[in-house]
Design a protein around this nucleic acid. Structure first.
Lengths: 299, 299
DNA sequence: GGAGTTCTCTGACTAGAGTCAGAGAGTGGA
DNA sequence: TCCACTCTCTGACTCTAGTCAGAGAACTCC
């Protein structure tokens, strides 16, 4: 990361907060405090529990409560206890609330339009493409990789999605029972670990690592949610797993994969894996890969 | 401007205000209200008059005064009457103020760094390039074109810069006295007009239009400040002049230029001008261009 | 020297955006 | 049934970021 890059990022921040920020306050603020507008937005068409709103917006419970009272007084929302658990309260938009939300929506469109308006068609295309790129890369930078137990709900969610996808993509379908699965404890310390990637708290990918004593480390069950592909997450998982395997003193990382997973195979090649002879008899595998890594035993 | 573009701009706005905005408040806000920080920044190394600070930041005089009192109480600035006009007061940073400003600067760097930090080298390069593009195009969209009298200080500033540049770039140098200049009134109504481009209030370009009765309209003295080249300003000037000439009922737009101005010649070609035989005996011209335009007499 | 102007400052207010410490209703398990 | 816990709400504050209406000093022009 060099000084020129930092300077460019700072220039970008200044220009963007100036242009977008000023217009944002100007358009969206009209007549309604930003806090209320955000809330109105976050409630959505089907309503939300108050606690969830609080989490999503990261606000104090007292503050949210007060905002809701104000929206309620304006007739934009109704707040009712959830039948099953009457401590939890559910917020729903009234018709007036829906109308107000649509108005916000329109203003948001106007704001976007006013950024493009002074430009000619060619410039618009370039601006939008550059914005998409910035958007994608900033999003990528927001994804967090955390080690969790494979039984954690987020891990389970990813694994279910992973199996579903394999079932759809493998020519032969996929039955976890037929596959060489690590035993229950295989992906938790001390002989393994499991990572999930999260974007705004939602799980969007996973990867497991087997650390068998006396054998090479092995990547298992790497999966990235379709809507977050193209952010370089697969590569980041590999780098993280490689670093962790190295920390545990391993000097070879390997994995097997199915020929239907073309993008993954491309990734393994470009990340420095070499194709090797079959090192196991996984029935769903067509390719086996291996990479020498630099062991860095922790002291 | 289509819906997909609007959607992408909105996604961009959301991601950017989230990432940049959150970090902005977090980093820069530390210990000092944003208002004070902005002021500290705007004072700069050599100090500033209070009125100018007010203008630049667009703030109420009472508010600025109070912010200055607070900075003064913290020993960061000194405020003194200007010797020549004791109504105007000049703010200067103390050593402590300079240190505080440097700390803000560092935090700004950290903020920029924290956006890049989670990315790998290739992604950083792509992000920075995309940010530069967004920055450039949003800046382009901020430039305003206004009609002014050619004697207006902003117009004069541009014209002086224009002549200086011609003097440096023409093989033969440039002496306005030898050139075919429109007479004093030539670039003001009813037989002409003069435009300046302004970015944040600063003049960054100009272009004149002659509207001689019974002859084609003519572009004169088009100039764009070096630091704003590449924003499509030249093309925007031409489009604006063409539209205005058309409004006045002209159906041909022409201009002459010197062979040293390669970029301009490229622009004229790509904008639809055809090279024609010399239509005047301007001693500094090597190329003459003409474009048919659609006359739209105002009713 | 006086009138009108310019510039800055002070006092009095307002709105938004939160924070913090309970209170009270509701739930689940021993 | 009781106890601990969860969830939401209320009251009492705080801090920013302003706005508005003069007051008073300094300047300019006549």
């Amino acid at each position: 990361m060099d000084g020129t890059q930092i300077d460019q990022v700072r220039r970008f921040n200044r220009t963007v907060t100036e242009r977008v920020g000023v217009l944002h306050g100007h358009y969206l603020g009209r007549g309604r405090p930003v806090g209320e507008a955000r809330l109105l937005w976050e409630i959505g068409e089907q309503g939300q529990d108050v606690r969830r709103l609080r989490e999503r917006l990261g606000l104090d419970s007292g503050y949210v409560s007060r905002l809701l009272r104000s929206l309620e007084a304006d007739g934009l929302v109704t707040v009712e206890p959830r039948p099953r658990d009457r401590r939890v309260r559910t917020v729903r938009l009234t018709d007036a609330g829906r109308a107000e939300r649509a108005a916000l929506d329109r203003r948001s469109d106007e704001l976007a339009g006013s950024l493009l308006e002074p430009l000619n068609a060619a410039q618009r295309v370039r601006l939008v493409a550059a914005m998409a790129e910035v958007d994608r890369l900033l999003t990528a930078a927001t994804v967090a990789l955390d080690r969790v137990d494979p039984d954690h709900p987020d891990a389970q969610h990813c694994l279910r999605s992973y199996f579903t996808e394999l079932r759809e993509r493998f020519e032969t379908g996929f039955d976890p029972a037929r596959s060489l699965l690590p035993d229950a404890g295989g992906l938790r310390p001390p002989h393994g670990l499991f990572l999930v990637a999260r974007l705004h708290g939602e799980p969007v990918g996973c990867a497991g690592l087997k650390l068998p004593p006396g054998a090479p480390a092995e990547v298992k069950r790497m999966w990235v949610a379709p809507h977050t592909r193209g952010l370089g997450l697969g590569r980041r998982f590999l780098a993280e797993l490689e670093a962790r395997a190295a920390q545990h003193g391993f000097d070879v990382l390997r994995l097997d994969t199915n020929r239907a997973l073309g993008a993954a195979i491309g990734l393994y090649h470009s990340y420095g894996f070499q194709e090797v002879a079959a090192f196991n008899d996984e029935p769903y595998a067509h390719h086996w890969f291996e990479k020498r890594i630099t062991s860095v035993p922790s002291e």
